[in-house]
Design a protein around this nucleic acid. Sequence first.
DNA 1: TATGAATGAGTCTTCATTCAT
DNA 2: CATGAATGAAGACTCATTCAT
Lengths: 195, 195, 195, 195
Amino acid sequence: MRVQSIASIKEAALELFAAHGYAHTSIAQIARKAGISKGLMYNYFDGKEGLLRAIVSDAISTGDDLMGAGLQGSDDPAEQLTQLIKVSFQMLRENTPYWKFVTSLAFQKQVLDSVQDLIGPKNFENMMAVTPLLASLGVEEPEKEALFFGAAMDGIMMGFLAMGEAYPFDDMEKYLIHKVAQMQPKNSEHKPIKK
Amino acid sequence: MRVQSIASIKEAALELFAAHGYAHTSIAQIARKAGISKGLMYNYFDGKEGLLRAIVSDAISTGDDLMGAGLQGSDDPAEQLTQLIKVSFQMLRENTPYWKFVTSLAFQKQVLDSVQDLIGPKNFENMMAVTPLLASLGVEEPEKEALFFGAAMDGIMMGFLAMGEAYPFDDMEKYLIHKVAQMQPKNSEHKPIKK
Amino acid sequence: MRVQSIASIKEAALELFAAHGYAHTSIAQIARKAGISKGLMYNYFDGKEGLLRAIVSDAISTGDDLMGAGLQGSDDPAEQLTQLIKVSFQMLRENTPYWKFVTSLAFQKQVLDSVQDLIGPKNFENMMAVTPLLASLGVEEPEKEALFFGAAMDGIMMGFLAMGEAYPFDDMEKYLIHKVAQMQPKNSEHKPIKK
Amino acid sequence: MRVQSIASIKEAALELFAAHGYAHTSIAQIARKAGISKGLMYNYFDGKEGLLRAIVSDAISTGDDLMGAGLQGSDDPAEQLTQLIKVSFQMLRENTPYWKFVTSLAFQKQVLDSVQDLIGPKNFENMMAVTPLLASLGVEEPEKEALFFGAAMDGIMMGFLAMGEAYPFDDMEKYLIHKVAQMQPKNSEHKPIKK
DNA sequence: TATGAATGAGTCTTCATTCAT
DNA sequence: CATGAATGAAGACTCATTCAT
């Protein structure tokens, strides 16, 4: 029962935050949508901000799991990169308003610092994961290329989130995968590095 | 005096919006900082939202002017691209909080739709400007590459705006310029790079 | 107009605080009684607490003025002490609920510290004023007697405030004055000290 | 176990009331500190108010017991008065926050009337106990002197409670005892002071 | 052109109390 | 005897906007 309530609160809040933004979603709206009283929310979360934190935390876990799963599907770096791209694009496609919301938090001073603490390190972690893959593909400056690659991913997401269906999202996914394929070292005699 | 008042209102509002966000800046604060009364603001702008619209509109003009100037400095596509990059990075460096704010607007449902109408087309326009440059550099799929390139620019901006000084902003600028240099067509007989 | 509003807010708040206590008086009640909107209160005072502070501050000023006036009516210490007593009792008689309220604040942790800062020093100041009077009346330990005297005054007030009309307030006033009269030095040959 | 629970609830509530005030202590806090559930509290007490009433009632009993013990230590009125003073001061010294809280209740309209019914008569009872002692010491107006004396005690308590360590509490105790000693009747042939 | 007093709807948050289990 | 999930009313505070002057 407890678990049920918490879940429905989070769910309702997430949808409303994604639809109208954090600031423009009231506790009353969340409670109404979740089918509970306003007060109950405060039994489980540390205010509106705590609720946001919980949601973002969940989101990051989900993202990490998906990314992790993408990496484990293969030992080939090119394949892994491709998987990473596919998983990311799929995530965005399936839950567009939600990721739009999470991304927007990175820019909002008005939103609690603690949330930014959760989001901030993600960029860095992503780069750390991609760098060795690029290195084993023979890229000259793998760290910078990882940053560049990550930036492109973010930018595509940004374009998609900002422009919506008008953005050639699927084409960009293919283009990225195509670029990865081009990175394939000619002399692929030495086995891909197993990580 | 009318012009003077309008300018000081915009200036004050911009600084406050950039510093605390749109939602967390009150009309009272703006009026105080601008040295005018709350009422006067309503003589010149259509409420808080109208003020925001005016500011964003100015910002976009400024950005366009800078971009245009960057393009006109040379006839060589590689040079022009390089200039575009340099100008963009410089703009961000010189006015970080301001661009962080403008960028954040792209993600905020809470902020007036009319503002998004101003921002939205920018991505497309940028792509339109870059595509012919890439084409003359012999890039195979210039449209997609323009989008990709623009996305990378946006992503770098995002990283810088979100992470601040921790982001290797200068390095990324060099890396981008380096990439442009590599695009140089083989038959570069007609125009050697000057700089 | 501004002055008028501020005055009516203070007046309404004072009456309500005195009648129902600080915690049990709502901003809505104050606004209704003062005939203004809830919001206006926040234009002039720093919230409910700021309003309280302003009221207490006013009260202390009033008290100081009355006390000062009491002391200036004569050069004779016994007369001055008597005046002090009379003025104090009169103050309590005329504005009982009000002083009950102010006194109660000294005991309330829940009420802002800054209010206690205003009230706290009063006890000390009163003692400082009475000590020289007692000294010139030949009292052996004037400082302690001043504290004792002040304590008795406070205690009488407390009794009156707690018990209301059942407390022999007038009798106690006479008794105090009688005690002061007994302090009169027999050899009153040396003139009273002029302060 | 019932007794145990009741005791721990009272104890926890008393400490919290004393530390943060009645209004600023929540049932949840009390239950947590007492190690029981919120619901259980309502099995034993008639809500928050009933709990307060029970606590105050206990406090008054304790006070009465101490006072009674003080009176029974001797037959000499002066000795008895001295004992009363010592016991009272000791009580305050040992449990300052607690008495500060109980005293504050006398001033709080916000707190249940029924509590004031418990506290109110105390003043009167104390006077009734002291009057005969003063009479046998030859004081002229023993009733008024008893009230005056009681008021001084209350006032000292107020000063101590309001000002804390800054108040010369110990000195005032000695001064009071000194005053009692001076009341000694001239024909003190029958019983010299022992201590 | 300019002021700032005034409004009132909208928000978050707290908490004593109830009740199904 | 005991729990704690759930409620809902109440309260403090914010702020864009209006309007008489």
